[in-house]
């Protein structure tokens, strides 16, 4: 898994590539936690390069969404979600819990 973090004026974009499983989810959570600890709660997860996500990765998504939405201080949105990853999100019942954009540019425009 490769993670790239870009801090923009109105939000943070995290681009993830590769597998998000029990081996790599802790690193993903660490990057996210650093952003949250910096008091930034508007986050785009750019999933374009993700080729696998397990429940360990989904736990990071839902946990981050809960933290960001607390006190109405922000939100996590998803961008460029591949078909297979979308199937997992749907099965997990996550699709009503996240705004999903076709690419990172439109996701950033949401904030």
């Amino acid at each position: 898994m490769v993670i790239q973090h870009t801090e923009l004026k109105r939000c943070d974009v995290i681009n993830i590539k590769g597998r998000i499983d029990s081996a790599t989810a802790p690193k993903f959570a660490e990057v996210v936690n650093e952003i949250i600890e910096a008091g930034r709660f508007h986050i785009v997860f750019d999933m374009d390069g993700v080729d696998f996500i397990s429940s360990a990765g989904l736990r990071v998504l839902i946990g981050t969404q809960k933290t960001c939405k607390r006190y109405n201080r922000g939100e996590v949105v998803l961008a460029a979600v591949p078909e297979t990853i979308m199937a997992s999100l749907e099965l997990a019942g996550f699709t009503p819990l996240f705004k999903i954009f076709k690419d990172a540019v439109s996701a950033v425009g949401n904030f």
Binding site: S54, L58, R59, Q65, K66, L91, A92, G93, L97
Partner: peptide, 23 residues
């Protein structure tokens, strides 16, 4: 896991076994 519940009530565990049976 309770799938169709609001965000606040979502549990963060229990999805693994559910996925195995679904797929």
């Amino acid at each position: 896991p309770k799938i169709n519940v609001p965000l606040k009530q979502r549990q963060e565990t229990g999805l693994g076994l559910y996925f195995m049976h679904q797929w």
